[in-house]
Design a protein around this nucleic acid. Sequence first.
DNA 1: CGGACTGTGTGCGGTATCGTACACACATTT
DNA 2: AAATGTGTGTACGATACCGCACACAGTCCG
Lengths: 239, 239
Amino acid sequence: MAIAQDPRQNYLLAALPTEDLERVRKNLKLVELPLGEALYESGSRQRAVYFPTTAIVSLLHTLADGSSVEIAVVGNEGVIGVSLFMGGETTPSRAVVQSAGHAYRWPGKFLKEEFTLGGPMQHLLLRYTQALLTQMAQTAVCNRHHSLDQQLCRWLLLSLDRLVGNELVMTQELIANMLGVRREGVTEAAGNLQSAGLIRYSRGRIKVLDRAGLEARTCECYSVVKREFDRLLPAVART
Amino acid sequence: MAIAQDPRQNYLLAALPTEDLERVRKNLKLVELPLGEALYESGSRQRAVYFPTTAIVSLLHTLADGSSVEIAVVGNEGVIGVSLFMGGETTPSRAVVQSAGHAYRWPGKFLKEEFTLGGPMQHLLLRYTQALLTQMAQTAVCNRHHSLDQQLCRWLLLSLDRLVGNELVMTQELIANMLGVRREGVTEAAGNLQSAGLIRYSRGRIKVLDRAGLEARTCECYSVVKREFDRLLPAVART
DNA sequence: CGGACTGTGTGCGGTATCGTACACACATTT
DNA sequence: AAATGTGTGTACGATACCGCACACAGTCCG
């Protein structure tokens, strides 16, 4: 399982000109992100950003009563910890590993140095942040207007885009937390998708059988977000 | 009604050191924003940013079927058009004037010049953008978990914070569009607030009678957003 | 003064999701 | 093989909101 790791597995890092990447990579450290680990908690001071390669991380907004919603998902197309370069240092969100894997950790000190140079890295980070804005906005709309079935499709597709393979390890309970709905609701929605032959489900493993079917069933929110990511972060050599 | 206008009525501009403001203000132009005007449409190229002084602008995300939701509201604490300095040039959102008033228009060319200097203006714009991120995230959570009554309270308070006086000109129909619910739903929620003696309603005018009462009735989302704005954009001389 | 329009109130059945409770299936440990 | 725990399926009434239809009341205008 020891796959060779390279910073270029992350699209943002891969999009850097070689000389910039060489300068940056000296301070990158490969770390393993186990399922459920919190990269930062609400309000806590962040000390580094993370560029995922194989891990997927959810940004969650939690309420006082404990209920929560995922507001965005970050994989190897992005970076976790935008508040470090935006200047706020903290956010009211949490970042939780949704799918175990690896990421490159970059201490805030180096990030800020590089950011103030105003070069390609600054440019990429800001464009990524705008893509994140879009994802969050679309999530807000989706929460309001679309059925649980559709939202589940969207969520599966967003996760799938950030994974290798077509299987995700994820209980219905966890999905319910992400979507901010009851676990039973997810059971029903997932049952619908399974009856339709789009996925197969078994104790915390979801295998996607018909990706096109999911795309047909989901709301426009998925494609809006995807299109905006492609527009803002284009044409890096996506291996 | 011709009140003297000064860029410093906008908090971001007011927070600039004098020399920076002097440089910037040369290219600012005071414009009037009538109710309902769109500062930019979804996907259209933005040519300038706007610093409101007395106007309030809603950022709306619209779906293919025409239904929409407000994802953030911008008044004299902020700026409209963050995608210009974030690098994307466009966004899938629309910006619509929710309450008529004035704003300072700053052409994108000058904005970008100033931004690349990396000085106080860059710093302020980025911190404001982070505050915007928080507002959007909290909106997403609120859409999911809170009752229409609570959301209406939140919305009234957010608007109130950006206005002088305690009266807002706004039909229930428009509020419904902002919140992404039916007009009748707003009628009912507003009726509840009126029975409770918190507001008085009449044909497009809402007078807030008991602000503390609204704060007691709203969800935590209002205070989370407000606190984050105060933290990120502190200590400018708020007249 | 009458008409048209806009904004608001109200009532109805329909439905998606909630909250709660509980049964069952699979997996891992003893 | 039994025991325990975790993940999933199912059923129930409750409820918040929807979609629709329509009545009515201010306001503007000829």
